[in-house]
């Protein structure tokens, strides 16, 4: 065994390597996303995940070993969920001014996202574990992962599905809403926040500040609603 291989075999068992790799990959992803003008398809998370996936497969590192280091980042999903209270509290005046349309659109959008996703997946005969994983995909990642875990889903796959949902929402929202002739920025923003969480919200802020604020409100409210109704709606499909 060469010296370099020895050093690697020592280091690759150390959580530090994969913690550093996670942050470095995200940093690269963020720089590339900036260079691409923050287009929705140039998502820093997607880039980081692909870089790390190639690295893990290339070095023959099992996911479990990677997670030994990455768990320190993963842990912060819980505190991040609690932190969502701040934008939710900040946007509370909007909720007061348009309570009925906001709540009606929240319930309609959230139920549609869950039921349609479950119906399509069930029509293709995917198993119960995957149904439990797909149900909460419109909620923001920490909530979707937590809910999937509780319902017997696969938390790591839930994270991937949440990410994909956000990318899809950010890509389709503007053309779809233009085709439907929805001109109210509140309606446009809220529906994106409910359907496509943080990535949708980031996209809405790029288009219009009112849309962005309502998207943030939709994301926060849907985190709560999805956690409440997803287990119940899932039971209809099992």
């Amino acid at each position: 065994m060469t010296d370099a291989a020895l050093i690697w075999s020592y280091l690759s068992r150390d959580p530090l390597v994969w913690l550093a790799a996670t942050l470095a990959a995200y940093w690269i992803g963020d720089r590339l996303s900036l260079a691409a003008g923050r287009k929705p398809w140039a998502n820093p998370v997607l880039i980081a995940v692909l870089l790390l996936a190639v690295l893990l497969v290339g070095t023959g590192t099992p996911y479990r070993a990677y997670f030994e280091g990455a768990q320190f980042v993963h842990f912060l999903l819980g505190p991040a969920t609690v932190s969502l209270a701040v934008p939710l509290w900040r946007n509370a005046p909007l909720l007061k001014r348009a309570a009925l349309p906001v709540l009606a659109a929240l319930v309609a959008g959230s139920v549609t996202a869950i039921v349609v996703a479950l119906a399509v997946a069930a029509a293709f005969g995917v198993d119960d574990v995957l149904l439990a994983t797909v149900a909460a995909k419109s909620a923001t990642a920490p909530v979707a992962i937590g809910v999937a875990e509780r319902m017997g889903g696969e938390p790591t796959l839930a994270a991937v599905l949440v990410l994909m949902t956000g990318l899809i929402g950010a890509l389709v929202a503007t053309p779809l809403l233009n085709a439907l002739r929805v001109t109210d920025w509140r309606a446009r923003g809220l529906s994106i926040g409910v359907a496509a969480h943080g990535l949708g919200t980031a996209r809405a802020f790029q288009v219009n500040p009112t849309a962005g604020t309502f998207a943030g409100l939709g994301m926060g409210l849907n985190a709560i609603l999805t956690a409440l109704i997803a287990p119940w709606l899932l039971r209809l499909f099992l």
Partner: peptide
């Protein structure tokens, strides 16, 4: 094995949820 089914589920449900959410908001407003 399940990738295409899951991807289709995500695309269809995202389109439906955005459309239903935005139209419901507009109507109730």
């Amino acid at each position: 094995s399940a990738g295409p089914a899951l991807l289709l589920a995500l695309v269809v449900s995202s389109l439906a949820a955005i459309a239903v959410g935005a139209l419901t908001f507009t109507l109730v407003a």
